[in-house]
Nucleic acid binder design. Structure first.
Lengths: 235, 235
DNA sequence: CAGTGGTCTAGACCACCGA
DNA sequence: CGGTGGTCTAGACCACTGG
């Protein structure tokens, strides 16, 4: 037997199907809560919850006083999940290794100070690591950390704990932004990753905020031949 | 005056703040629905809704019989929104142009037939376009379309309607998956984009499903120097 | 077993939209 | 004005977890 679906779930599925099959096209009205109460013999709260969740998923739009309509599906939106690299490899059953290239305290230059919202010349933590998956270099990570957000950062044993783990542990995440680009590695980066300087890489720049502090800015370089981001989306 | 926040929103904010400030750390218990009823003088449905939505946002995890806990924020998840390129440019106030390189019906090879869930040799629609932003080539799009999902695809005037628009209009989207990689362009692609063959590109491979059909598989190439994906996330 | 979350109801009041 | 959605309550029954 199928696991008994809750009533609001049945309503959601019913609406979803009509949209997916094209019975109701973008802009068309969806049955009102009152109509769904009759149609399914449920209370208004239940019908309301079904439509509210569909709205949260972006499948319909609701306007108070006017009604519910099928959303213009002019975008494919999908969860891009950025996870801790260690965990990601563990899930694939692969072994994770780290090569530590730099662990140091430095003075922030003008640009970096701006990114971290610090004064120019303020001390910052700087680490450069290469992450290995089954002994193959897969990620070059150049990271600056705000000492105020994670005072003990430099004491971390980065062969055992990833910077991401340490930061999530000590500086609860409240905000993050990222950019993904394609670029060629510098000579140093190529050497550290064991690739040619002509091999294209994905580069992710990330900035994380924890409470009142910018916690960290990082530049992560993935060799194009060894890594890709992927995701999916289902209505 | 601040717009009066609904009760469930106040509860959510209160919990969110305690998590963001680190008062409650990942794994710590969050007050139960009963406790929140007392604390805020709300009904259980209201307290429940607050916690349910926080769970949907990934900030807490709930286990029936056990309780609610602060989620392990071991992942930064963010909405990667894939939009129609035309619309994206319109929003930036830029002009969109299209160069049509190929519009044809072909026979599917073995690999393509597999992707589209068709028999080998079945007819498929094939288009190759270059999208221009303010007259600069920004995207090379090589796309195969399942005729069953969009019979009129080849009749589209691609200088006015993007493939994405046509497909969303005629083949309601039910599912999609994508992969983002870095690679170098082929000689043809480089020529069409007006870049050197040594310039790294972001490539997005996308497969969309509409009801019973695989609607389309597409390969989109963005010059690394002219385009990047970006996004943000806020708890 | 007590405490938890998961679901559901039958009402209610309000704000808003469109005719 | 009637119909819509947005919110909220005070109950209820159930399934599950943990001691």
């Amino acid at each position: 037997m199928a696991a008994a679906k809750p009533a609001y779930g049945q309503v959601k599925d019913w609406v979803r199907q009509h949209i997916a099959r094209g019975d109701w096209r973008p802009g068309d009205p969806v049955p009102s809560e009152a109509a769904l109460m009759e149609r399914f013999g449920v209370s208004r709260m239940t019908a309301h919850r079904a439509l509210r969740e569909l709205a949260a998923e972006g499948l319909v739009t609701r306007t108070q006083g006017s009604g519910t309509r099928v959303a213009q599906l002019h975008r494919i939106s999908s969860q891009l999940v950025i996870r801790d690299i260690h965990e990601e490899m563990a899930e694939r059953g692969h072994e994770h290794g780290t090569r530590v290239l730099k662990v140091a305290q430095e003075k922030a230059g003008a640009e970096l100070a701006g990114s971290l919202r610090l004064r120019k010349g303020a001390p910052v933590f700087h680490t450069v690591l290469v992450h290995l998956e089954n002994a193959v270099p897969i990620l070059y990570e150049d990271r600056y950390v705000n000492p105020a957000a994670a005072p003990a950062y430099l004491d971390t044993d980065f062969t055992r704990t990833s910077p991401t783990s340490h930061l999530l542990e000590h500086a609860p995440l409240t905000e993050a932004s990222y950019t993904i680009e394609a670029c060629l590695p510098s000579a140093d980066e190529a050497r550290a990753l064991g690739i040619r300087v002509s091999e294209p890489c994905l580069v992710m720049m990330r900035r994380t905020v924890s409470g009142a502090h910018v916690a960290s800015v990082a530049r992560q370089l993935y060799p194009g031949s060894r890594y890709s981001f992927s995701g999916q989306f289902a209505a």
